[in-house]
Structures are given as C-alpha cells and as structure tokens.
Design a protein around this nucleic acid. Structure first.
Lengths: 98, 98
DNA sequence: TGAATACATGAATGAATGTTCATATATTTG
DNA sequence: CAAATATATGAACATTCATTCATGTATTCA
C-alpha cells in the first residue's frame, strides 16, 4: 500500500500546483513575496486585472490554503500563507532555462 | 513595459506548471527522478494507469518540453529533460507542511 | 440615512483537461 | 509474411477552469 500512499501524496501536490498554475495567480504570488500584504485594488492595478476576475482568483487561492486575508475597513489585505511557495517560481525558471 | 514582461514570464511558468499539475504526471516525474529511464509499460505498471491514458500524458509532457523519449525496438524509454524539475515536488511538500 | 467605495458571489458560457474506446503504426519473432 | 507486442493517435464525452456580467454585502463618510 506504499504505492497508493505515494500516489495520494502526488495528488495533494497536484491540488496545490493546480491552484497556482495560472499567469495571474503566479503574479499575485510574486507581488506578495515582495510586499507582505496588498489589498485587492492594489493588486488589480498592478496586474491590470478586472475586479471580479481577480476576486475569484483570490477567493479560490485562499480556499485552497495559499493566501491569507485580513479585512481592514473597506479593504481586504491578502498575504501569502506560506512564503516558501515563491520558491516554485525560482525553481520553474531554473528548469526552463537550464 | 516591464510589467508586461513580468506577466509574460509568469504565463510561461504557468504553462510548464500546468503540464505537471496532475497526480499521474507528478508520479511519472518522481519515478523518473529515481530511475533515469523507464519505458511505457514499466511506468504503466508502477502507476496502475491504463496504457492509452498514460500515453496521452507522456506525449503531452514530451510536447511541452518536460520529457525526452528514445525508442529502442518495441519500447519507448522516457526520461526527464531537466532533472531539476523534481525540485518542485520537494518545494510543494515543504510548503504544504510548513 | 443614503451615496460611494471596496470587495464577494453566483449564474452562464466558453475553453482547456482528463478519460475512454476503438483503431493505427512500428517493431520483433515465428 | 502473419501474429504478437509495445506504443501512439483521434474522436467523443465529461469534468474542471477561466471569464464575464449582473448583483449582493460590508464599510465609510457626508
């Protein structure tokens, strides 16, 4: 049953990977790796992304354990739940170049 | 235009990530990180994956620059084009645990 | 209290992915 | 050459993902 366990682990990894395998979502991660926290409007400006679409992305990434969200007045500030996730970007870059 | 460049880079990264964001595909990568080369039947046994489905996965991963393929007689041996890609697995695991 | 701002939500739709099945191709072997 | 083996391919369909649009909710401020 060790094989099934391996498969399960990979399914879990795939679940997380799917949640970030999108240009806009990776940009969000990249921005939040530099900025600690950003609200939706700030992200929307930087990404040139329509409000509703961005909100869907953010909500889903949050639901999947990638982002945190904190409300302050009218604004919602998003941040990375785990900063290590940005390493995936470096990793992919080095793979694509090597 | 530096912003657009960033976005393009992220789209490229997303393209590669999409090509591996699947349990079966991650298992293939994991196996090939230990084994150097495996043919389709060997992979199929290990993964308990139907021939045609596995073949589709392999063909697509090859088309997207993740795998190499070498034919030897009746067999096709697949290998990782870039071994560094397995680091993504470690990365995801550390993210999900931390 | 009501208008404005910031964000979320839900339904609808189209596009991309995953899966199956039937069949095709290449190679080896009798 | 015919049968067997290993793999690929293509069509069809279901499932998931991305996008848009209209509308809802929370908060602030005049």
């Amino acid at each position: 049953m060790d094989q099934n366990n391996e498969i399960k682990q990979m399914e879990e990894a795939a679940y997380t990977l799917k949640a970030i395998s999108n240009g806009t979502r990776l940009c969000v991660i990249s921005l939040l790796s530099e900025e600690e926290e950003m609200n939706v409007s700030q992200l929307g400006e930087k990404l040139n992304c329509e409000q509703s679409l961005l909100s869907h992305h953010l909500t889903d990434m949050r639901a999947k354990g990638i982002l945190n969200c904190r409300r302050d007045g009218k604004n919602c500030f998003y941040s990375l739940k785990n900063k290590q996730i940005v390493q995936i970007l470096d990793c992919i870059r080095s793979c694509n170049c090597a």
